[in-house]
Nucleic acid binder design. Structure first.
Lengths: 187, 187, 187, 187
DNA sequence: CATGAATGAGATTTCATTCAT
DNA sequence: TATGAATGAAATCTCATTCAT
């Protein structure tokens, strides 16, 4: 029983989006390992064969999920009046997001892990990480950080803490709050 | 006529160990997702069916790998003369191990991720984490840490940093060194 | 807003021709087994769905390829002043064509093979074979051949030799030249 | 309902043979294009998954079919008292086999055709062809053939005729008989 | 105990074809 | 008329697991 939907350009974009979203959800629930194209297609409301119309291969779909996921995160940057304020806001926003949208970090974690073996994913993630790193380093260099310290090293610590906090969602906010305190007490 | 070697208890233990080690190696190389029982059996030098003799199900084998992996890490604790020294040593030892035996952390990462969906693995890992957490908290409470801070929160930060540092092996040492500096400068 | 060109009859015929030619090329390169309608359509410069407008089903397209292919071959007959000369020319022309346009024979071979299982194709090919057989038999009966021999049998031999020579393009000319010598030495 | 059969070594060989035979039959009936592993497995009386136990990939199975098929043919050589007699017997045996076991030639034809695009098959077939060519050339050089002619060229003609005769099973015997007459009349 | 043959469930991918627009 | 989205059927291959031997 063929369901006919308006195949306008907008619809095509919607379909792609729906598929990516569905794939994201699946990864969040069952992990990259448990990602099944059939399930994704069903969740997006179309035949598993049609999925290949939009994403010829599974890797293509995953790549889109990587882009989608990282894109969700970076808009959280950039707000705040001073460098120190921006770092503070960033840490809190991350902790907040971990509570509100834990899937985001779960999926990111999955992707980070696979990136270790998949250059294609590695590339996309690295791109995002570069921006992230640059942002934090800039704030630290710009006064959010005791001059005696190395801004780059500080950025690595912040990034590591955030990534690692993901593994224990319950205590993530606590850990990041402690980091914030440690950093601001240096000023 | 197949030669049946007398399966002494020692030999049996050796076989199990070999299988777990082989599984660990496979996970390190190909990820949990790429873990194939046949490959494990071959690497351990026996038939894939014999593997089921020692580990009836795949999950059983993985559980043993979890135990093996965590067990590799905790002996690294406990050395050092003062609490602050023990924390310092711990951080450096972790950074050192990340360089020397990165597989340990790769595998741990894989297992941590799966733990999110697998209660059995979750339990084993949590057990290890408890000890870890307890050790760090103890040192922090015991003077390794500025009194104004919360030892438990500090422990969470340290754990998160270490776990997260795994994702970027290149900058792991830098990040942890920075954390160490931040902590010790509080004294 | 898609530009709809007036599909004049001439253009329509051209489109069909282009499709058949493209299909022929595909078969030559990838075999009947590797014939993909989408690839054909792309090669002919139109949409895969438009192809179905000209050839409702894959079989229809193939049938047209059969006709096209056989049609390419028979014009090579008929020249020469005497029966013996015509046979000689025919053999040489065939050998020559095998070198110059090997695809023709490759495709013919593919079609011959499928003809064994597909009556529709069988019919078209047989029609061509009949003319071919008749032509050769006529020449042989007409003096190109030692009277003691059976013209029909000779025709079968010639046809078999030519078809079989296709399989080894390198030695095709050699084989056919030998046949020619054998035949003419009988005169 | 698991069917348990004696998994002796002999049985294993039998199973492989059965699978190759079944594959051969399938190719004879439906062509290489129509070869379906499931159908082969069913015809051989086992699960389609078990087939992969014996032949990891489809190509492996096909390779075995190529060997099996060519092996069926060459034993037909070598009998006869004189070179001329051996050639005569060879041609008649071929014609006879074409009538009695036409599948042999159908399959060979399919394989020859695919050999044009598949080097692996090409290699196996070429090996057989070399022996065949050598045998015929030897007989021709050895007196089965008028000295004025080139033995190698004669061999090519014979091979081409036999291969080509396959396409028209009805007239194959006629064509080959005519070739025989042509050759022997040269003596 | 150890082995290898066997299975069944399932995953990705391909492709001819159809249906609205 | 031409397009591209959608479908369903099917095909190859993988893998954990089980069962005789």
């Amino acid at each position: 029983m063929p369901m006919t939907r308006p195949p306008s350009t907008a619809a095509k974009v919607d379909r792609r989006r729906a598929l990516v979203q569905a794939a994201f959800d699946q990864i969040a629930q069952r992990g990259l390992e448990g990602l099944r194209l059939r399930a994704v297609a069903v969740a997006a409301g179309l035949d598993h064969s049609s999925l290949h119309h939009y994403f010829p291969t599974k890797e293509d779909l995953i790549a889109s999920v990587v882009e989608y996921t990282t894109a969700q995160l970076w808009p959280t940057l950039r707000s705040g009046r001073s460098p120190a304020d921006r770092i503070r806001r960033h840490l809190r926003l991350m902790a907040h997001t971990m509570r509100e949208r834990p899937e985001l970090f779960v999926v990111l974690c999955e992707l980070n892990l696979r990136a270790a073996r998949d250059p294609a994913i590695r590339a996309i993630i690295d791109r995002g990480d570069q921006d992230w790193r640059a942002f934090i380093t800039a704030q630290l260099s710009d006064g959010a950080w005791h001059r005696a310290y190395d801004a780059a090293a500080g950025a690595e610590l912040i990034i590591a803490s955030i990534k690692g906090a993901t593994f224990n969602p319950d205590t993530a906010a606590t850990a990041l709050r402690q980091l914030e305190r440690l950093l601001t007490d240096q000023e």
